[in-house]
């Protein structure tokens, strides 16, 4: 079923509405296997919705969504629970507001899903969790409670938690937007390290244009629930073709 050419994520003719409001309309998008894509655009353009649909956190009203070939939606019909969980197993997601589990220690936050979902033994899960915490620079916080951490530390724990299930695709939903400015750097540094050392596919919704430019293989500009323009970062940032892209960029990165 899976081949090298098969995309990590595939959206075809996806329509998403909240009541009367249309968020995505005939939305087409592909994330190549191993590709790192930054989704940019004004707020309300549907960027985060794309990630949430990929993780099956949202219903859609029409279209097809595939995760490594596994259909989540086929022409507007949802996959059954087993198939949804098979698709989710390929994905990891990091949220703007972290959503750490406050009643569990940092270590337990990382081991809960591997133990319950992947049936890992406690010591094995803990060992892996410590290794992940080391990777995000927080091995000394294993026994801490989430509330004892700074925002930047919480987000690094959240990243480690998502990695603990060894996903093929990572979804980052405005992961620095809720942080104090001085903590943005430490989280972006973790992303950069991940991007350089792994072959995971990554889809990143961000307002950090400088980081997107550096990090992404391809930048996708969305507005009004559609892809307006997509291309390599140098091209999209340096020489945008579309007027709407130019307008947006001039607003977010005043020269």
């Amino acid at each position: 079923m899976s081949s090298i050419a098969e995309p990590a994520l595939e959206f075809r003719n996806v329509t998403k509405r909240y009541g009367e409001t249309t968020v995505l309309e005939d939305f087409d998008f592909q994330l190549g296997a191993g590709e790192k894509v930054a989704l940019i655009g004004p707020s309300g353009s549907g960027k985060s919705t794309v990630l949430r649909i990929a993780m099956a956190l949202e219903d859609i009203q029409g279209g097809t969504v595939r995760v490594h070939g596994i259909p989540l939606w086929l022409d507007g019909v949802a996959a059954d629970r087993a198939q949804t969980r098979r698709a989710r197993a390929r994905l990891g997601m990091v949220f703007q507001h972290f959503h750490l589990f406050p009643h569990l220690s940092v270590l337990e936050n990382l081991t809960l899903a591997p133990r319950l979902v992947n049936k890992k033994k406690a010591d094995e899960a803990a060992e892996q969790a410590i290794a992940l915490l080391r990777r995000v620079g927080l091995e000394d916080k294993a026994q801490a409670w989430p509330e004892q951490l700074s925002g930047g530390q919480k987000q690094r724990v959240a990243i480690a938690r998502a990695l603990a299930l060894q996903p093929d695709i990572m979804l980052f939903d405005e992961v620095t937007s809720a942080l104090d400015p001085e903590m943005v750097g430490e989280v972006l540094e973790v992303l950069r390290e991940l991007g350089e050392t792994t072959s995971m596919s990554m889809l990143l919704v961000t307002h950090e244009m400088a980081f997107a430019r550096q990090f992404a293989d391809r930048v996708v500009f969305m507005d009004g629930g559609k892809v307006v323009e997509a291309g390599p970062p140098e091209e999209l940032f340096g020489n945008p073709r579309e007027e709407r892209t130019r307008q947006f960029l001039s607003r977010v990165q005043p020269m």
Binding site: M55, A56, L57, R85, R88, A89, L91, G92, M93, F95, H97, H99, L100, F101, L112, A113, L116, V117, R161, A162, L165
Partner: peptide
């Protein structure tokens, strides 16, 4: 918070 459910689902629980 709803985010707790979403984080759980994203971890495939």
């Amino acid at each position: 918070p709803r985010g707790q459910w979403e984080a759980g689902r994203a971890l495939n629980l």
